[in-house]
Design a protein around this nucleic acid. Sequence first.
DNA 1: TTCAATCCTGAGTTTAACAGTCGGGATTGG
DNA 2: CCAATCCCGACTGTTAAACTCAGGATTGAA
Lengths: 143, 143
Amino acid sequence: MKLSAKSHYAMHAMLHLASYLNDGPQPLRRIISAGQPREYTEQLLGALRRSGLIDSVRGTKGGYLLARKPEEITVAQIIESVEGPLTLSHCVLNEDHCENSESCTLKSTWEHLTRGIEEVLGTVTLKDMLNNPALIPQKKVIH
Amino acid sequence: MKLSAKSHYAMHAMLHLASYLNDGPQPLRRIISAGQPREYTEQLLGALRRSGLIDSVRGTKGGYLLARKPEEITVAQIIESVEGPLTLSHCVLNEDHCENSESCTLKSTWEHLTRGIEEVLGTVTLKDMLNNPALIPQKKVIH
DNA sequence: TTCAATCCTGAGTTTAACAGTCGGGATTGG
DNA sequence: CCAATCCCGACTGTTAAACTCAGGATTGAA
């Protein structure tokens, strides 16, 4: 139940892009913070681009920028881009894996919990994080 | 954001113990299902016992049993026993890790999200899962 | 038109956690 | 005493994460 370094790097990068929204494309060099491996982060930005969360500009003066407004980008989207689909169990994805019926009381439980978590992560946007100091506003009824 | 096999095995075992609540201690042999490695599961049951979720009885006719009522055991507790503390980021645990202030707008976000997820996993009990077929009842306001 | 700054990509390598195995010891009912 | 059980630490194998590297493609500017 921990997130990998990927998510941290990706979140940090996205937060940076959100902060420098009006300063043109941000080159990788400016996106990474101290101790953050350059080439590795580059790969993650590739994933974020392929997911449509950011755009890239090549060449001198190139760099990365948000493809949408900060309020339209959620933590869930960022994490899913780099970590893959957000699901607690392969059981939820692979139908055939759970044949032994009784054992898969679990299945419906995982599905339910996954939905819950998706909802938690889906309700915090980059904009919320920028307005952050007074934490993130949120009041939500989960079913 | 995926759970490891540990959680699956542990959940399965706990579900079994909840099912055979009145049949005395359940030996490992009866707890594991097809394809579930015996010795590995044994380790996990050790963790569950050390967390106080189950008790064990040694010797012939020995086995494992729930230490509390099914409605008092949550998915969060089970997962935490075997996977360690439920937190998205080491940042939340290690104070010193996040010195660069701006970077750790992230910190309060992780804390907030972790609380949300804890709440999701903490509201489903073994009892809920037994009553399962009609999914898990739940209506909760998260802050 | 050349050059340097950038993004882009795929193929490595290293590392650490997960997953599983093994051997033997301790406890206890029959 | 013996067999069934839990208990525990050490070991091994496997896999995914976390990097590294080498080189190619694009583009603004000197």
